[in-house]
Every structure is written in structure tokens, then in C-alpha cells.
């Protein structure tokens, strides 16, 4: 186990109780240079997670609350005419930060959503014909309410692909919930979190993740999983090669957190569900994506 990261995780679980796995997945996602989508009902600790992560990693943090009247300029920034110097001056928007929390992203109009998603993919934004690159590291943690809620604009499938992982938070177990009620855990603790990794260290770690070795056997395993999603008839569309790359990168990060510099099958299994779920369209209702993916996992 990588001790630095382990410490961070321990600190995190002090704030968010009973969600060790979700916390580790979130960290793993960031290590893999991926963006994270957290999907669940309001009040499950989505924002607390994002806040804690930002503090722990000492990242410059911005938050946008998405609403239906949010405009792209509200995210990217605008040029304002400065009378003193008689020229336009660019006021960067919240997107120019290291960790951006996009809260309730599916409440914004598609136009605004796409502005953000473009920035996520390119890691730079073009404003008034001028490309401006975003800081490093650049991580977006977006939260999303389930689509059944009113007043939401579902993210198009192609945009979902921009997120490396999609994690549901889920209800805490009884013990953890009791701790929250007792006031032993919760969002108020976020401010007490100390920084355990500097952004520079974090960038280094991201580079080290790339060096995690994946043996040929495990590449075959990934291929078999991808093939299973394409052939078994469970999904309208199977996983793309890009999804395969994402899966491998996430698994590497997972192994890195474990302190290994090589992959084992368990790494892939651990990240498969969060990496694949939001990229697949179910053909039939009645079975949760997770169950089905676990089944494919067992078959492959």
C-alpha cells in the first residue's frame, strides 16, 4: 500500500464514513487523470467528497452550481473592457482551476454542459479565438442527480464517455449513519482536513501510474471483457476501444494505490463496474448494470 495515499484515504474516511471503496475509487480516478461523475440522490455526501479531495490534495478548487440558466461564459470566463488601460481584459472563469466541482451538472442546458465537457476533453479552452490551456492537474468532479428527477437535462451518451468513472454514493450503513447523526462525521470536518499531498507530488504520482506494468495475460483479460459487452446481447452498444484504454488506466491507478507497479486481475475487476456502467446502454430493464457487469466479469 502506498503509505501517502493510504493516509489520505484514512483521513477521508473520517469525513465520509462507511464509503471506503467509493473514496478509493475517487482517488483512483484522479490518479488516472480522469474526471469523475458522482451519481446519486441529493444529500448523500457527493459534495463533501469533492471538497475533501480538494483539500487533501491541496488543489486549487472552484465550484460551480449548475442551474438551467447558466451560460458557457459563466464557466469559461469573459473579456471585460478595462477603461484604465483601454483594452479588453480576460477574466478567467471557474474552469481555470485544478479541481472543479460541477455540482448537479445535469441541471444545466446542454449548451453549457458541452462547454465544460469540451474543456474536460481538450484540457484547454478557446475563448475569442485564443486558446488558453488549463492548469495541471485538471480534474473535474461532477455530481449528477438521477435523471428521473424533474428539471434535468440528461447528459448525452457521447458526453458520458468523457468521465472516466461514474460512482453511485449509496446510502451509508447503519453504523456510519449513526456516527453522522451523533456528529462524529460529516461535512463540517472537511475544514479540519490537512493537506497530505502537494499538487506537484500528485502530478508525479499521475506519471508513475503510467508506468504500472500490465502483462499480456491481463491485456487479454481486458479484451475478453470488452468482447463480452459487445457480443452477449445485453447491451445495445458494447464498449469502445477508448473505454478499454480507460479501463486499463483506471486499473493501473488502482494497483498504484495498492503500492504495486504491476497489474493483477483484481485491479481490473475492481474498476470495471464504475468505468463501464455509464458507457453502456441497457437493452432490457429489470437488472442493474452492476449485476450484469459482475456476471460478464464472471464469464470472461
Amino acid at each position: 500500500m502506498n503509505s501517502t495515499l493510504q493516509n489520505s484515504l484514512d483521513a477521508l474516511s473520517g469525513v465520509i464514513r462507511g464509503k471506503d471503496r467509493e473514496l478509493r475509487l475517487a482517488l483512483c480516478c484522479m490518479l488516472a487523470r480522469g474526471h469523475l461523475l458522482i451519481e446519486d440522490l441529493p444529500g448523500m455526501g457527493k459534495t463533501a467528497l469533492a471538497l475533501s479531495l480538494a483539500r487533501l490534495l491541496g488543489l486549487e478548487y472552484q465550484r460551480i452550481q449548475f442551474t438551467s440558466d447558466l451560460l458557457p461564459a459563466d464557466i469559461l470566463g469573459v473579456s471585460i473592457f478595462d477603461r484604465a488601460s483601454s483594452e479588453f481584459q480576460f477574466k478567467p472563469g471557474p474552469v481555470f482551476s485544478q479541481l472543479l466541482l460541477a455540482d448537479e451538472i445535469n441541471r444545466a442546458s446542454p449548451r453549457t454542459q458541452s462547454a465544460l465537457l469540451e474543456a474536460m476533453e481538450e484540457r484547454q479552452v478557446t475563448i475569442e479565438g485564443q486558446g488558453r490551456s488549463l492548469p495541471e492537474p485538471f480534474v473535474v468532479i461532477a455530481t449528477q442527480n438521477p435523471l428521473t428527477q424533474q428539471g434535468t437535462f440528461p447528459l448525452p451518451e457521447s458526453q458520458m464517455d468523457r468521465f472516466l468513472m461514474c460512482i453511485p454514493m449509496g446510502y451509508p450503513d447503519t453504523d456510519s449513519e449513526k456516527a453522522i447523526l451523533r456528529g462524529e462525521a460529516g461535512r463540517f470536518l472537511v475544514s479540519q482536513l490537512g493537506q497530505s499531498v502537494t499538487p506537484k507530488q500528485f502530478l508525479l504520482m499521475q506519471q508513475e501510474v503510467n508506468n504500472v506494468h500490465a502483462s499480456d495475460l491481463l491485456l487479454d483479460y481486458v479484451l475478453r471483457l470488452l468482447k463480452a459487452t459487445r457480443e452477449e446481447g445485453y447491451f445495445a452498444v458494447g464498449l469502445s476501444p477508448r473505454a478499454g484504454l480507460a479501463l486499463l488506466q483506471a486499473a493501473r491507478a488502482w494497483a498504484y494505490i495498492d503500492g504495486r507497479d504491476y497489474l493483477i486481475p483484481e485491479d481490473i475487476q475492481a474498476v470495471f463496474v464504475p468505468v463501464a456502467t455509464h458507457r453502456l446502454t441497457m437493452q432490457k430493464q429489470g437488472i442493474s448494470p452492476g449485476e450484469l457487469l459482475a456476471r460478464i466479469n464472471a464469464m470472461a
Binding site: H213, S215, L217, L218, R260, D261, Y262, L263, I264
Partner: peptide, 9 residues
């Protein structure tokens, strides 16, 4: 086992 099979090193 896993080191010899998967690590490649």
C-alpha cells in the same frame, strides 16, 4: 505467484 506472472519484471 502474482509477482512472477503479472509484474513482468
Amino acid at each position: 505467484y502474482i509477482r512472477s506472472v503479472y509484474s513482468g519484471r
